[in-house]
């Protein structure tokens, strides 16, 4: 059953990603990216990262992608036009992508035995739940990065406000 879950949602991820690639209107790309995020959330849950699955849904799909959608609608972005830009990206990009996929696939399959197996809902069995585990490490060992990231967000807010401000 774990394998079935994986395959369904894995295919969903890839399909959403390909859809992002092939759609011409950005809003379609954004919506397919939301699908990818959701499917990834399920996959995180199968790997035992419940908190992250929830965070993925709330933060990524619920906030970031919504932001993207807002901006697309705000700017009234239309379909992509064909321009006379360089075609070099196609010639380098597609073979390159295929090459990278092939390479990484080869490596990971080569190491398949050494990597081991995933247990469905890995940490549900243990005494501590996933979230308490995360928070224990986050607020003791890694407290400094945590505080720094909060400052980072503050700076990002300021930057966004300044950059997007209409000139008076």
């Amino acid at each position: 059953m774990a394998l079935a879950l994986f395959i369904i949602f894995g295919v969903l991820c890839v399909a959403g990603a390909l859809n992002l690639l092939f759609q011409r209107h950005p809003i379609n790309s954004a919506l397919s990216l939301v699908v990818v995020m959701m499917a990834l959330a399920v996959i995180y849950w199968t790997l035992g990262a419940e908190f992250l699955a929830a965070a993925q849904v709330i933060v990524y799909s619920g906030a970031i992608m919504v932001l993207f959608t807002f901006v697309i609608m705000l700017l009234n972005a239309g379909e992509e036009e064909r321009t006379t830009g360089s075609k070099a990206a196609y010639f380098v990009g597609i073979p390159g992508v295929a090459g990278i996929i092939a390479l990484l696939t080869y490596i990971f399959l080569h190491e398949k035995a050494a990597l081991g197996y995933a247990r469905l809902g890995g940490s549900l069995d243990t005494a501590t739940s996933n979230i308490s585990e995360i928070s224990r490490v986050l607020f003791t060992d890694l407290l400094l990065p945590f505080e720094v990231t909060s400052i980072l967000i503050l700076v990002a807010i300021l930057g966004a406000v300044v950059l997007a401000r209409r000139e008076q």
Binding site: G85, S86, A88, A89, V92, G93, G96
Partner: peptide, 8 residues
């Protein structure tokens, strides 16, 4: 786009 290409 070409920058992106070189990056990749």
């Amino acid at each position: 786009r070409s920058y992106a290409g070189w990056l990749a």
